[in-house]
Each structure stands twice: as structure tokens, then as C-alpha cells.
Amino acid sequence: MMLVVKNLKVSYGKIEAIKDVSFEVPDGKIVTLIGANGAGKTTTLRAISGLEKCAAGSIEFDGKNITNMEAHKLVPLGISHVPEGRKIFPTLTVRENLELAGWTLKDKKLIKERMEDVFEVFPRIKERANQLGGTLSGGEQQMLAVGRALVTGGKILLLDEPSMGLAPVLVDEIFHQIVEINKRGMTVLLVEQNAAEALDIADFAYVLEVGYTTISGTAKEIAEDPRVREAYLGV
């Protein structure tokens, strides 16, 4: 297993955002967490990448217990997190944003190569390489955010609502690229409110409800589950 989350609990002060979340992400697969607003999807990803402390439970990554390790130490172990809202550095250029994503890599040539890869995957980003990050459109920022994760490399890609605020064509484009990235060997944990698209590309899925993982199965099973169809697929 690439990632095993067991009985995770995360609180913000007195608010228990995550009460009991457990799930697994097998090597090389795409797993999606779906859930309504405030279900705790973002919090779960933030706990995995070390941005939030876990109050209880454990997180195991690639055979190693990483519970409550610091975020910057998890990056070189292979966790790449594209956060909610993209979090592009607004007054750094696109190129500088990408360069910083290679912060933990010693090999400067590798960073260059990976940046070229990103430019190939997202030609729009290449055209805007010398523009400030803050001047990109929402879709371009999302591409840059995914591009940064590609420069960082890593074994698992955590994606927090990559489709948020994007036009349908761009959503298709981003999802297509996620599948491509996965085919090249990166395991993917995808958080989405856009359940239909997410279930379409995922191997396994978990439903998150107010801090609990409630339903789980293969993406196909989940897509056919009447409870999910009613609550998340609008059918």
C-alpha cells in the first residue's frame, strides 16, 4: 500500500473537523475521496502532507509511519500536494514557481528536465513562463499548480478539487492530464466535489461525511451505489 490512513482525527481548536477517517491508497492507483462541503476532504489531505496535526490515528506512507511529521520533510519522501485554491506564489514568475517546486532536489539538471516536461504537458504554461503567477487565469493557475507537483516529483500526488472554478473543457483537460500522470507511475489521491468526473477516472473511492468515511468500494461500485447516486451524482 502506498498510503494507509487509520482512524484519523483532526481538530481545529474545539472543532473536530475529522472524527474517524480510514482509507487506503494502493500503489499506482487513483483513489478518490468524495463528499459535500465541509465533510473534511481538505483537512484529510492537509493532515497527510503535514500541514495539520493529527489528534489521533495514524498515517503510513510507503511502509513508513509519517504521522505528525513536518510538511517539508514529507516532500523529499515523495508526497506532492496540490492544495485547495492552488496557492500559486502571486509575485513570483511562473518559472520561479516551478523552480521552487524543485527545492528539495539536488540535481539542477533534473529540475530543468522536469520543467521542460511540464511545458510539454501544458504549453499554455510555457507561453506564460515569465509572467507573474498572480496574473494567470484560474485554469492556468491550476495547470501551474499541477506543474509544480510534477517538478517536485514524488510517489503520490494529492489533488484537492482540481476542477474547482474551471470551465467544462478545462475540467476534461485537467482530468485527462491526471490520468496521464498516473499512467507515468504516480499514485493519485483525488479529492473532488465533482463526483461524476472523479469516479470516472478513479479505481477506488471513499465517501466522506461530516468527518467520517462512510461508504467505500471500487469506483464502479460507488458510482452505482444508490445512496451515492442520490446524494452526489444528482440522479
Binding site: 492544495p83 506564489f89 528539495t104 509544480r148 517536485t152
Partner: peptide
């Protein structure tokens, strides 16, 4: 500019 994003770059 953004401490969380910087941490996610491994800084």
C-alpha cells in the same frame, strides 16, 4: 507570500 504553499514545496 504563502507559508503553507512554501512548506508544500519542501521549504
Amino acid at each position: 507570500q504563502d507559508k503553507d504553499a512554501a512548506r508544500l514545496m519542501g521549504i
